[in-house]
Design a protein around this nucleic acid. Sequence first.
DNA 1: TCAAAAGTGTTATCCTTACACCCATGT
DNA 2: ACATGGGTGTAAGGATAACACTTTTGA
Lengths: 341, 341
Amino acid sequence: MKMSKKQSLKSGFEVQIELSAALVAIEGDSPRIMLLRDQAPAAKGAVGAGLPSGPFDAVNDRTLEEGLRRWVAQQSGIPLGYVEQLYTFGDRFRDPLERRGGPRPVSVGYLALVRQSDLRARDAEVWSDWYRHFPWEDWRTGPPATLDSVLAPALKAWVDSSGERSDRIRRKDRADTTFGWNGATWDNERVLERYELLYEAGLVAEAAADGRFTPDERTQLIFAITGAAMMKDHRRILATVMGRLRGKIKYRPVIFELMPPTFTLFQLQQAIEALAGTLLHKQNFRRLVAHEGLVEPTGQVQTLTGGRPAELFQFRRDVIRERPAPGVRLPVRRGAGRSQL
Amino acid sequence: MKMSKKQSLKSGFEVQIELSAALVAIEGDSPRIMLLRDQAPAAKGAVGAGLPSGPFDAVNDRTLEEGLRRWVAQQSGIPLGYVEQLYTFGDRFRDPLERRGGPRPVSVGYLALVRQSDLRARDAEVWSDWYRHFPWEDWRTGPPATLDSVLAPALKAWVDSSGERSDRIRRKDRADTTFGWNGATWDNERVLERYELLYEAGLVAEAAADGRFTPDERTQLIFAITGAAMMKDHRRILATVMGRLRGKIKYRPVIFELMPPTFTLFQLQQAIEALAGTLLHKQNFRRLVAHEGLVEPTGQVQTLTGGRPAELFQFRRDVIRERPAPGVRLPVRRGAGRSQL
DNA sequence: TCAAAAGTGTTATCCTTACACCCATGT
DNA sequence: ACATGGGTGTAAGGATAACACTTTTGA
């Protein structure tokens, strides 16, 4: 044991750090995530596109964030404004390459917000609607159909598949609370918990990609329903991003990092609805943001969209000084569905 | 042996990851952080005690968290319950050792909550009241005296010391919003922002320890007032912990990870006050926690403390299922000071 | 004219805050 | 008796959710 210490100091304690950025933007009512198209379509088992990322250069990068900005600039040409560190993932065997003796992946995930105006994709890039990867998270047109018809029975099967009774109870309980079944309520922030659960239950493509099992035909169908997969654990990072953002808009004015300098109240509402995945009560929403002093009128109006011209507003920076936790309250509407707006 | 280590680091992309844990517990009205006493009193420049920590073993640890638990168990013998990853720090030159050619530090900071009952210190350990390291964060007996008398003028000097006018304005603004001066409000969650500001202004001991400057006598006095320093960037990790916890108690039932299985409402209130650094309104606090269904009576009573015996309560686990964001609302009291309770 | 979105007004209800007050125990 | 903490009642004010309704544009 002690003998090999020297060796393990060399080989065991050193890792490469990968820096990954989830670039988020909003276009109209669509929340977008920037993906790089499959670069090395590669060995079988590799799935989907991935986030911009690259190794941390301990010699030349002064901070982790600096390294990240360097990679993003290089790979996407997009100037980053708001950047926030999210989480550091170090689980073994998330990456199929590692099974074949590749390096142990430790990746630091970042959230970066991109203004609508800076949103322009080059060839190797694509701004993908994030609900393409998380269909069950979009409740704007009512409860997602696949939730009850596909996911519920599939998870039920997973619950029952456990040999131990106590374990079945734990699984059932977990499924109920994260998905809001049987009296529990749907919490739109628990994106990661839901994804992890589906992963463990083998219901998302990545679960098969890591080589634990080979999916049968039925499972393949489910994969088609649980949305587009991404490289390595990037979809997990996106889940973290979604949850974090959904929480954060409520108590920090991050939403304005995604908006153009001036915007109508309806644009603002749509942007928030896009992130939250639920619809808001229009009249009360307007009153709230006005009342809380989050925005101020610019005097200009916008004559675009279908109806009456809307006044343009801008973020009122002073709220940051005035209020401890300035964010957008979410006056949720019960019966979703844009129709009855 | 050190040779081979240094050499392999030369490649640039390989780093050692340090895992650090901030173990938090509450004893009565005192929030505690576990420190290991100065182990290598060491080269000058090294300051104070530090958090339990150790390198991540990429070969043997399945996850980062597993590695962390291994180190904590080894160094403190304390069984960890609730563990949460906080932040990954990778700034250069936080560690004076690094200036002398040591390895580039990348440290992943964790928050771990320890129950009062498991709180027992061994020889090398000490449970330190966290306000010893952050005196200005404790508002329970009113606004901290040193805030206006010492920190305000010292920060004013820092603001004025900048050559550029626009920079002075930025600094002034930052000081005002983080410390709640000139019309801004004190936000008890901005612990890290306040610490970082003091660090940049050279008003905490660590700022000198990294070798950027040598403090004069007046500065030494200020250091004595800005609280006990810690190893490396551990005080920064503690600041992150404090801010995170203060935010989190409001929307997640984490406080109960710190309480014994049963407790009186006053104990619960004291615990929350300890973390939040402010006093709460007793009557309304009781109603809130009862009303929100966070606790349930056990039937037993406790006959200790000065007054009438108090009923013992326990955490009601079901809230997690029922409510999306169960936490303790904080009915703050305006004029602080325990006296008028 | 109608559809679509911009806005205003009003009410019932709940939540928060503040104050006043009584209860049970140990010294 | 009184200090200390436990515990209840209640009323004013504010915030929220739901509803109905008017206004202004483009097609």
